[in-house]
Lab assay of single mutants.
Amino acid sequence: SKWSPSQVVDWMKGLDDCLQQYIKNFEREKISGDQLLRITHQELEDLGVSRIGHQELILEAVD
Rank of each mutant, 00 (worst) to 15 (best):
S1F: 11
K2W: 08
W3V: 04
S4Q: 03
P5F: 10
P5E: 07
P5Y: 14
P5Q: 07
P5I: 08
S6C: 09
S6W: 08
Q7C: 05
Q7P: 04
Q7W: 02
Q7K: 09
V8R: 01
V8A: 02
V9H: 02
V9L: 09
D10C: 09
W11P: 01
W11E: 05
W11M: 00
M12P: 00
M12H: 02
K13L: 09
K13M: 11
G14S: 14
G14H: 06
D16S: 06
D16V: 04
D17A: 10
D17T: 11
C18M: 06
C18W: 00
L19Y: 02
L19W: 00
L19Q: 04
L19S: 04
Q20N: 11
Q20W: 11
Q21K: 09
Q21C: 14
Y22S: 03
Y22N: 03
Y22H: 05
I23W: 07
N25D: 12
N25G: 10
F26Q: 02
E27I: 06
E27F: 06
E29Y: 11
K30S: 12
K30W: 05
K30Y: 07
I31W: 03
I31P: 03
S32C: 14
S32P: 04
S32K: 08
G33D: 01
G33V: 06
G33H: 04
D34V: 10
Q35E: 10
Q35P: 01
L36W: 00
L37C: 11
R38Y: 06
R38D: 10
R38W: 05
I39K: 05
T40A: 05
H41R: 15
Q42I: 05
Q42G: 09
Q42F: 04
E43H: 09
L44I: 00
E45C: 14
E45N: 14
D46L: 14
L47Y: 03
G48V: 00
G48S: 04
G48T: 01
G48Q: 03
V49P: 01
V49L: 04
V49I: 12
S50R: 13
R51V: 15
R51L: 14
R51H: 15
R51M: 13
I52L: 15
I52A: 14
I52P: 15
G53W: 10
G53S: 15
H54W: 00
H54R: 02
Q55H: 01
Q55D: 00
Q55A: 08
L57C: 06
L57E: 06
I58F: 13
I58C: 01
L59K: 08
E60F: 04
D63L: 10
D63R: 15
D63E: 14
